[in-house]
Design a protein around this nucleic acid. Structure first.
Lengths: 337, 337
DNA sequence: CCTAGACCATGAAAGGTTTCACGTGCTGAG
DNA sequence: CTCAGCACGTGAAACCTTTCATGGTCTAGG
């Protein structure tokens, strides 16, 4: 009876040593040839490359990582994949990373700081060269863990990190102006959780402008997603506002559903404006007027910044703020006369 | 002038050797203590653990991987993150994987076989313990690359792999029955690209049933997403069908938009039924009747199967088929009398 | 009191790669 | 003709861990 011989269904990948031997050169030369570094004669290099290809050589990344300290992986940490904004972001990040030769660990923190903590730690332990982090809240214990790993922070201005943001305050302003220009004077604001600076900025931008040029009928915060907080529902039900600015498209959509369930119609009875321009926004009926930010550019900038920092840790910190713009659709009209 | 001293802004993580030295034990003992393997006295183990914690020791995964051949990472390959079906899937996979101690490399193949090829190869090179793969088409060159890496295939029945599927044919049947029960006799079918067996199954299930109990007015395939193929638009414009079965919710939504742009209303003029039950389906106006499959269960099953195969490569192949169900909403009514 | 084992602990090899420091042999300038 | 220097190659160390084989100490049974 043969004892368990090496399973031949799992063809071990060729090692560099084997390539070197097969090519009749030293390990060092093989390495140099393949990495294009060192000094190898043109003829030898080609020969080695040919042999390597023949053997189907693929470098063992773990070993490589051990020597170089580079894993070729980056992490992307987002709060909630269920919010369509994030897949859009992830898609571009993955694509850009791939172009730069990196693979992407994706993790979803489920909106919970504990999960965020755990996720990040798993990721960092795993050995990533850098992290793109879209924090749930402004800060928290996670910041410490990431210490030592190049990190670019999306959407929030965390001191000490590279930061990619959009000009939310201006977005809030734009939204308010748009409504005011349409003739609204009684405007309500629903904002996201104020633990997040982004939500604050959006709200503050809107509120400041509304206060200045119209009436801020009410302001509720801490709305999170499609399911409306009771406070939000209550505010909506006062029917005192003819227009609503929501801190996110998801919130806006939730609000519109609620409004409809009250027997009112958007935009005839109440105008609604959102934030993010998620893909559904234009698919919704009525199509949602919203504030659009250049996700693609932001994602690309994030990757680019991260790669830059990975390759040169002493880069000066960067903070890039992208402009937002209003995209007018059907969910806003003038107030009922 | 000091020559560039070791950068102290990047605190090198403690190595196991350092822990061992600090604890006054051998490297081996430290390793055993931390991994809970080998034989270490209770007292020593605790001491080592304490020292390790103090030093903030985190094992170097690359080194570990090199010895053990396990990277603790799995890959998830999906066609298109923009289709909300996939983020839902990804979310559960990531979560389940995390629970099992794995991190997830996510990659989006942009619906293109070349990108798929490149993505997979990058991933495999990177060293993943296994792959969950949602193929674009039924087969192709990628299959070869994955050879040697444990793989579970989602949605398509690829021979030789572990497979997780939903019973699409039955879904098609369900959709057709539903329409017929509502009184429709002229039914059109729009299906996805027939290169994908899933699309074929959906269509075949629907068509068989329609043929049997009503009239198949027309059938166009190769629809892909929101943007309708000209052929699809043309079919819709014949206005010969009072109900349409679409091979995916995204297709259904695209169709509804087109129908509306023709001045017709869903469901009064045309009933529409989709496939997938993506989150938008219920948010859409009118809410979309669709075939729901248990994404969470499928994702969890995929991870579980993969982990099983990783830890025991000689597991028998599995093929799990999940039941689908129809969720009735607003986009279907009886035909106009 | 002796010895077999149990129990702990350790040294050292191995795993695949990069890279430093060095050694050849040749070219071309003086 | 000599020798500096270049181009090309190589041996070996180092990266951090796991794990095998081995050795020492102590206990308990005979």
């Amino acid at each position: 009876m043969a004892k368990t011989d090496p399973p031949n269904d799992v063809p071990r990948r060729a090692t560099l040593k084997e390539v070197a031997k097969a090519a009749g050169v030293s390990l060092a030369s093989a390495s140099y040839a393949i990495n294009g570094a060192g000094s190898v004669g043109e003829a030898t290099r080609e020969h080695i490359l040919k042999v390597a290809a023949q053997l189907g050589y693929r470098p063992n990344q773990s070993a490589k990582a051990m020597k170089t300290g580079r894993t070729g992986a980056i992490g992307l940490i987002v709060p909630d994949l269920t919010n369509p904004f994030f897949p859009s972001l992830a898609q571009v990040v993955i694509q850009a990373a791939r172009a730069a030769g990196y693979s992407v660990f994706l993790t979803d923190t489920e909106g919970s700081p504990e999960a965020e903590q755990q996720a990040v730690s798993l990721m960092v332990d795993h050995g990533v060269d850098g992290v793109i982090w879209f924090p749930i809240a402004d800060d928290g214990p996670v910041g410490r863990l990431i210490e030592g790993v190049p990190t670019v922070v999306l959407d929030r201005n965390l001191p000490g990190y590279d930061v990619i943001q959009a000009d939310y305050a201006d977005g809030g302003r734009l939204a308010a102006e748009h409504l005011i220009a349409a003739g609204h004077t009684n405007i309500g604001v629903i904002s996201g959780p104020h633990a997040a600076s982004s939500a604050r900025q959006r709200a503050e931008g809107a509120i400041a402008t509304v206060r200045e040029k119209a009436n801020l009928t009410w302001h509720v915060n801490n709305a999170f997603s499609l399911d409306l907080e009771p406070a939000v529902a209550a505010a909506l039900e006062t029917r005192t506002a003819t227009a609503v600015i929501a801190g996110a498209d998801l919130i806006a959509i939730g609000a519109m559903r609620h409004i409809r369930s009250m027997g009112l119609v958007v935009p005839d009875d109440v105008s609604v404006i959102g934030f993010d321009d998620i893909p559904w926004a234009q698919l919704h009926t009525p199509a949602l007027t919203t504030i659009d930010m250049p996700v693609e550019d932001m994602a690309a900038a994030a990757v680019e910044t991260l790669v830059r920092r990975i390759t040169n840790r002493s880069e000066p910190r960067r903070r890039v703020v992208f402009n937002v713009e209003l995209v007018a659709r059907e969910s806003v009209t003038g107030p009922k006369s």
